[in-house]
Design a binder for these strands. Structure first.
Lengths: 342, 342
DNA sequence: TGACGGCAATGAAACCTTTCATTCCGTCTT
DNA sequence: AAGACGGAATGAAAGGTTTCATTGCCGTCA
């Protein structure tokens, strides 16, 4: 058990070969005669040699790790997305580092720097409220970046789901079920995903024309369970006249929060308040009242993003930036069951 | 934007100073005169210099990154635990790499190698079924390892929650509520956490003495939502005579799966079948039927583990291995509400 | 027997940063 | 005015791996 780093040099000396040969055993074993190879392997074993990745990387100029920066590791949407990334990455011999920006731009910036300094193979970024200008700088210095869960202009690759359509789907559904006083729960509104879903919602309302009030927006601090409860409190606190008959939440975690408060306050879902969520995470079907939700192809999102990233990293010269947009899909469950007419 | 790595050497040349000075600006700015410092900083800015972490690491012999290997990134228990780790880590200027072993020992081994090759600052390991022998080797070569969510002998640090007690809590509660035919859902049984919870459950039953049948064990492939559904199907398929009146699940995800199937099959929870989960993840309170669960101090688990790891990494000579064991706590909700006597 | 080809093995150079002993230079002391 | 002092800057060395041009060797062929 040798403590201070056993290096190729030590292995070489121990096996009685040159260090170049050791390297060959490690990287192109077929070029080394079986006898020598065996000797070297045994030396490696006996000395407990462990490759130094830092040195390899230094030499190679690039690491074999993809960085994925997400808004919230606690949100199943992102862990499922990460699953897709990991799958595609490991198929290509790459590893994944998962970074949690917690919707905070300073943390996002921190991780961007960290990943660039580590010469990451590439970065997958689910940006927060603002897309940092540094993204372009970083890319121009040679670290490819693909945006996930957010569309972009032609100047970069991105993979997203059409949030505008998603918002429309949700509201069309609620209108069709007879709701006229609808609230939107989500935030921060600066977040593209949130803003687009709200735009889609408004569009659907307007297209419908008269009969429906403008949507009431309940802005939240984040897209979390806790924020959902806060929003739920606010909604439950309204007088019956002003209380919406349906709530469209910008994601499922919020919806769960709202749902929990409604139940606690003895408001029936969907009887008193219908709820539609967004993402259709696995738990949606298992919620107190199974949740109607707008489904996004999470795993595929991650996989596609990774493929684009690899493409960009591999042939940076011929590579053409692409913007992939998936379509969301409405999954109807009990939380928005038809209103009894009264 | 300079493509091929701008190095300290380039910065030094551009600023008209020696490379040692650039390094000083970067690491001990107070030792450099303000004028020179400004000049160097400007050079860095203009050239778009980015530190090469690999080279720093190579020099330092150690990285500033902690690796956390968990069984399932999709399980909120582990993401909450990761949150605690990240908090403690960032307070100490360390970063976190989150690795998902997916309960597979080959993936676990892969990440162990990867982290050792990267000369990680330390490794936090939530081991799968078997604790790999390599753990000791890796530690002896200088990479500290702390076990999380699993106790250990005196030869290493570990942070865990008393699963035996947790199992007892759950079963005592169900017995007290009048249940006599109880099933245990969990697996793989080789997993320490699962085995200990089951042992605790059995112990509680035996202590109770006559009147209660032995527990029925429904083994699952993993501690996931999907596995829970499988188990639920099996339980729902039993004849009324043989069907348990209560199910104790080795974690909340399983419980959700079971719950979903029960509901779908028109079995009332807790009327026909009571359910107790484990972990008390946030969703537990929001489930179809709010879930009774055994709470674990997840965040604190992560924080404490990180502190032990840092301690071990910092003074490896005087460091004494410690085994921290937290106590679980039962949180009673509707899913185990009192049985109506009939 | 001499030349050649091919396989194996070699080892210097490069990757980039940090450290630290050393040099330089201007100022203060006596 | 000479010497001592201290702050600032220097640059060589080290850290471990990979690459690749080169050397060494042996067998084969003419």
């Amino acid at each position: 058990m040798t403590r201070p780093g056993v290096s190729v040099t030590n292995v070489a000396a121990y096996a009685g070969v040159s260090l170049g040969t050791v390297s060959n055993v490690l990287n192109r074993p077929e070029r080394v005669s079986p006898a020598t190879r065996a000797r070297v392997l045994q030396a490696i074993e006996e000395l407990g040699f462990v490759r130094n990745e830092a040195a390899r990387q230094l030499r190679a100029g690039r690491s074999r790790t993809i960085g994925l920066i997400v808004l919230d590791t606690g949100n199943p949407f992102f862990t499922d997305l990460a699953g897709g990334v990991e799958k595609a990455a490991s198929e290509n011999g790459l590893s994944l580092v998962l970074c949690n920006s917690d919707e905070k731009s300073d943390r996002e910036a921190h991780y961007l720097s960290l990943l660039e300094e580590q010469r990451a193979f590439g970065i997958l970024l689910a940006p927060g409220v603002e897309l940092p200008a540094r993204v372009d700088e970083i890319r121009s210095r040679g670290t490819p970046i693909v945006l996930v869960d957010r569309g972009s202009s032609r100047t970069q690759c991105s993979v997203s789901v059409d949030d505008f359509v998603g918002g429309q789907l949700a509201i069309d559904h609620l209108l069709e079920r007879g709701h006229r006083r609808i609230a939107f729960v989500g935030g921060p509104l600066g977040l593209n995903q949130v803003a687009d879903r709200l735009r889609g919602a408004r569009e659907a309302l307007q297209r419908r024309g008269a009969g429906a009030e403008d949507i009431t927006v309940v802005e939240t601090e984040a897209l979390t369970f806790a924020s959902g409860r806060d929003a739920g409190e606010r909604i439950a606190g309204l007088s019956v006249r002003r209380r919406p008959t349906a709530v469209f939440c910008a994601n499922d975690l919020l919806a769960f929060g709202v749902l929990q408060v409604m139940t606690k306050q003895n408001l029936a879902v969907p009887g008193d308040v219908a709820i539609v969520g967004y993402d259709d995470i696995d738990f949606a079907a298992a919620a107190a009242v199974p949740l109607t939700s707008v489904r996004q192809p999470r795993t595929q999102l991650g996989q596609t993003a990774t493929e684009l990233l690899i493409e960009e990293a591999t042939d940076s010269t011929t590579h053409k930036h692409r913007q992939v947009v998936f379509s969301p899909e409405l999954v109807v469950r009990e939380s928005s069951a038809r209103k009894r007419s009264r």
